[in-house]
Nucleic acid binder design. Structure first.
Length: 649
RNA sequence: GCCGGAGUAGCUCAGGGGUAGAGCAAUUCUCUCGUAAAGAAUAGGUCGUCGGUUCAAAUCCGAUCUCCGGCUCCA
């Protein structure tokens, strides 16, 4: 009978017939014993399910092992249950909230009642987890009625689960049990706990129930688990690597920036080295913008509150702005954004369609009141500088301008060797969330999509991620250790032209509304520099390095030749110093290596006589002796090409 | 803002109811040296701040500020 069989399609396109009702485990077994042993869950027609669940329909099938995202998701989800079981054993009065898998591991929100549980308690919970895992407890799925589920948790006095169950529909509720622990959960789970070989509880924090500040705060325990002890070790090493790259640590060591209590929290002071780095980045972008027809402007740091009332930022974003100050009976505010200032510059003259597109750029400093707990090094501050620009154009020009802003952004990130993922952030159907005219929105989203297709971009569309005033294109970059950061955005704005009554005279001699594109490739200089430091681990490419080269004379006798070498580079704007201290050469090299200086030029009797330099590259060591002129040309080439790698192998 | 952790010399950190310690850095002197640390001497701290307990507080208690890990937030 044909209906007793189903056809399953594997990821490689192979099709196989199976008996209807076969389990994922059995399918895995039919392929290989190894696969069956490593299988964690199965994804059928896009839905993840338990390995022992019967499969009754034709469709696609994927056996999830540790190597797939779905597999890890299942593994960590089950690990969250294991964590809860361990906590339940050690703290019988603990009440559980939610415990989902996350990008790197999982967490569980727990109400410990009167008990305080601190970081010191984590190792004990970890041990318990491993102990329980070894019992090879099976995860057993059970369907329960809503009433039964409510009764179960009411008896336990767990108001959180009761709260969750209330929102669920009868007939869709399932419990999972392993050992003595039962949890409300839709699954799926791995077959049994013994697959979890290594566990590490990484941190804890407070978390509000359902993310609501007015609700009770629970204790969130974060953890990560692995099917092999070795993987945990590698993961911990990776964390160490990230720690080594921490911009707060490197920023201090390399003299990039400082924080000062007397200046105020979240207000970084850029030190000389950091200022060189930042100005170099600014010069780079300024040049690129000049090539693309941008005009630079400068606007003040405070403005009459009326400006922000017109833009609508005040009082709408009142909570994240510094309080206004009273000046001559008028209220002024520290500027939270540059846009309104630029809009007024636009309005300063009668604009003709012949003037458009008008591209106004500014490295504009803005001030926002960020909550104290949110401040973090250079990546989250209260005063920062945006590489902002606003492009005022006609609807007909919109596509072309979007295209060129995308190109600029891609060019910028490719210069740093950062791969970029593109997300088109469009609106959803909730009209209340968005301003402006629906027809324009439709058109802009359509055009953004057309541009993306024409440029053959690999993009994702995210509905509901648009900003209030228009759709946007977000750039998500990946750094050298694979972390993702959302940086630049390109946003289309229909609301501000209305609010500021911006117009231009068209060829028909009538007034029209321009469209505005907001864009900022770096986003904020502070945040971008923090990411750059971590991306390069402080080993900046030559063109960016605050100090590019140090000349190290072997002894005092060669100081003058060293100065002569330095002068040759300095004359061309190379950032170079001479180390004339009475240290031994080993000491000078060590200090220069620690300061992450790209090139060390060692000069002694031989070099002076032959007019050469003996060159050492940071982290590579001695790369040989070059004539001064030859080396000079190579260095200039490396700087001017903004090379990511040394010209010297 | 909330939960948890932490503040001791410029940096990294030890100590801990009886009045302050190391290494590196700094300063001075000696050394003039060939690819990751020359030697010696000197100087440097009301132990984040304010208050309380005590004969005595850096140490115990409270408050406060700052920083770190999260939560919430991010035009």
């Amino acid at each position: 009978m044909p209906e007793d069989f189903i056809t399953l399609t594997f990821p490689d396109g192979a099709e196989k017939e199976y008996k209807k009702g076969i389990s994922g485990y059995e399918v895995a077994e039919s392929i290989s014993k190894g696969l069956a042993r490593n299988a964690l869950s199965v994804t059928v027609n896009g839905t993840i399910q338990d390995l022992d669940a019967p499969i009754t329909e034709n469709g696609t099938i994927e056996i999830n092992t540790w190597d797939s995202e779905d597999g890890q998701y299942t593994f960590w989800h089950s690990s969250a249950h294991l964590l809860a079981e361990a906590v339940q054993e050690l703290y019988p009065d603990a009440k559980f909230g939610i415990g989902p898998p996350i990008e790197n591991g999982f967490y569980y929100d727990i109400d410990f009642g009167d008990k305080t549980v601190g970081l010191d308690d984590l190792p004990k919970i970890e041990e318990k987890m491993i102990e329980l895992a070894r019992n090879k407890e099976e995860f057993k799925r059970r369907e329960v009625s809503k009433e039964e589920a409510l009764t179960f948790y009411k008896e336990k006095g767990n108001e959180y689960k009761v709260d969750l169950i209330k929102d669920l529909e009868d007939g869709t509720i399932t419990f999972y049990e392993q050992g003595d622990f039962t949890d409300l959960c839709k699954g799926p789970h791995i077959p049994n706990t013994s697959l979890i070989k290594a566990a590490k509880l990484t941190s804890m924090s407070g978390a509000y129930w359902r993310g609501d500040v007015d609700s009770k705060q629970l204790t969130r325990i974060y953890g990560i688990t692995f099917p092999k002890q070795k993987m945990l070790k590698e993961y911990l090493e990776q964390l160490e690597e990230a720690k080594k790259r921490d911009h707060k640590k490197l920023g201090k060591e390399l003299g990039i920036y400082m924080m000062d209590r007397m200046v105020g929290s979240g207000l970084p002071l850029w030190l000389p080295n950091g200022t060189v780095l930042r100005r170099t980045l600014e010069a780079f972008l300024r040049d690129e913008q000049k090539k693309r027809g941008y005009k630079e402007v400068i606007t003040p740091h405070i403005a009459n509150i009326e400006l922000y009332e017109t833009s609508g930022h005040y009082p709408y974003y009142k909570d994240s702005q510094f309080d206004p100050m009273e000046v001559d009976d008028e209220k002024y505010m520290l500027k939270p954004m540059n846009c309104p200032h630029h809009h007024r510059i636009y309005s300063n003259e009668l604009r003709s369609y012949r003037d458009l597109p008008l591209r106004l750029a500014e490295f504009g400093s803005v001030y926002r009141y960020e909550q104290s707990g949110e401040l973090n090094g250079l990546s989250r501050v209260r005063g920062f500088t945006q590489d902002d620009a606003h492009i005022y154009c006609t609807h007909d020009q919109l596509k072309g301008e979007i295209k060129s802003t995308i190109e600029l952004t891609q060019f910028v990130f490719s210069t740093f060797g950062m791969p970029v993922d593109i997300r088109l952030s469009f609106r959803d159907d909730n009209d209340k969330k968005y301003g402006g005219n629906n027809e324009y929105w439709e058109r802009a989203q359509q055009e953004i999509k057309e541009v993306a297709d024409e440029m053959d971009l690999d993009y994702k569309v995210a509905l509901g991620e648009a900003s209030f005033y228009g759709p946007k294109i977000d750039f998500i970059i990946r750094d050298a250790i694979g972390r993702k950061w959302q940086l630049g955005t390109v946003q289309v704005d229909y609301v501000m032209p209305e609010r500021f009554d911006l117009t231009y005279v068209g060829s028909d001699n009538n007034k029209h509304r321009p469209v505005i594109i907001h864009r900022a490739p770096f986003g904020s200089m502070e945040r971008f520099v923090s990411i750059l430091i971590e991306h390069f681990a402080g080993d900046f490419p030559l063109w960016l390095s605050p100090l590019q080269m140090k000349v190290l004379p072997i002894s005092e006798d060669f100081n003058s030749y060293a100065e002569e070498c330095a002068a040759k580079f300095e004359a061309e704007g190379v950032r170079v110093e001479v180390d004339t201290r009475s240290e031994m050469i080993g000491g000078k090299i060590r200090d220069a290596e620690n300061a992450k200086i790209p090139y060390m030029l060692i000069v002694g009797a031989k070099e002076q006589k032959d007019r050469t330099v003996s060159v050492r590259r940071h982290k590579k060591g001695d790369i040989g002796t070059f004539s001064l002129d030859e080396f000079f040309d190579k260095v200039m080439d490396e700087i001017n090409s903004k090379s990511l790698i040394s010209n010297h192998k």
